[in-house]
Nucleic acid binder design. Structure first.
Lengths: 191, 191
DNA sequence: CAACGTAGTTATCGGCTGATAACCTGTCAA
DNA sequence: TTGACAGGTTATCAGCCGATAACTACGTTG
């Protein structure tokens, strides 16, 4: 019954992945370390051993998500360095749900004195990255993030994305008024 | 030691107010019914008695917040029925923090099967209200809500609003690039 | 004043949850 | 082979939390 042994670093990465999934669904306070452990196939105390506290696990997860979003922006900008291309990359991230939604849970927990500084730093870094990559001025960048936050909230509410509910009138008015074929991916068939 | 007895309806309203404050800080899962009870000066079991479950209390709180936001929009539109005026009303709400932030916590909990339908209905109703009041077309309304969601997230992270942290460069770039004297109210002096 | 409905309390509990401690086990070097 | 370190586990717990049950007190009405 001996499971394959991994290095601490491999296990660390795997646990971040499990935490990403778990925290996406339940948020910080609504997720237990045992849920994360089961997803990763390890015992709950081992999760605590590797990360110290649940809070540190959450912070590591948010930072990981932010970093991966940044990577996706950079990859997109290598193809074409404008806001439209980064917007398309964001639509892809939205369809995958996890990275974006876990960030929203981080933002919502931003009043916590330990989590607040982390999520503010992540947001600021993403803002700087977008401006650096695209050369957007403050107003353009602001519009970009505004639209991003709207889509993020709609994704968290399952108005768009993988597990989207049956669309009502206002949803199509809100979402359908612009080109988002990727973001609606989950509403139709398998990707 | 006999406290002033209130009617069930008065106590109900008072508890919603306490829940608004409590859930704003901790979100749904991160807030206890005892915290709400203490804020209102009643015992924890009585909170459960009046609302059935914690979940129903949260739902009632979110619906109350949504309704009050709608009222503020309607009041603003009576003065001048355009998006700029409603935007100014939203800035006031942001400065007060509670109504807006508790809505964000509701959105973040939108994956919950019991909470999701409620917050989607609230969002849809606010969307319809804004369009009805201002006559905005879908694209204009979308831009309005996009900016609103950005400000909402920034408020939850304490980038703007009453308890805002010391501003960094990216924050002033993001926020300062447009006319928001009211939203920065808390960063300067007493209101 | 009796009595009854409504407002509210204290007592209590089962279950969960994060965290600690102690122990076990695979693997590699000498 | 043996030791020793790194990767894990089982056992356990103290505290919290939502919820239930049973009881108490206020005040109004006839």
């Amino acid at each position: 019954m001996t499971r394959t042994r991994l290095t601490a670093e491999e296990r660390h990465d795997q646990l971040i992945g499990a935490a990403l999934t778990a925290f996406t669904t339940g948020g910080y306070a609504g997720t237990t370390t045992d849920q994360v452990a089961r997803l990763a196939g390890v015992s709950q105390p081992y999760v605590i051993r590797l990360f110290g506290t649940k809070q540190q696990l959450f912070i590591a997860t948010v930072e990981h998500a932010s970093h991966r979003i940044e990577q996706r922006f950079r990859a997109a900008a290598e193809v074409q360095a404008d806001l439209a291309t980064l917007g398309a990359a964001y639509d892809d991230l939205l369809a995958e749900r996890e990275l974006i939604t876990v960030m929203l849970h981080g933002f919502a927990a931003g009043a916590d004195p330990a989590i607040g500084p982390v999520v503010r730093a992540c947001f600021g870094r993403l803002y700087e990255t977008v401006r650096e990559l695209t050369g957007a001025d403050p107003q353009e960048a602001r519009d970009f993030f505004a639209e991003g936050m709207l889509l993020t909230v709609l994704g968290a509410m399952n108005v768009i994305g993988r597990d989207a509910v049956a669309p009502e009138r206002w949803m199509t008015d809100l979402v359908g008024s612009l080109d988002l074929p990727e973001a609606m991916r989950g509403a139709e068939g398998p990707g």
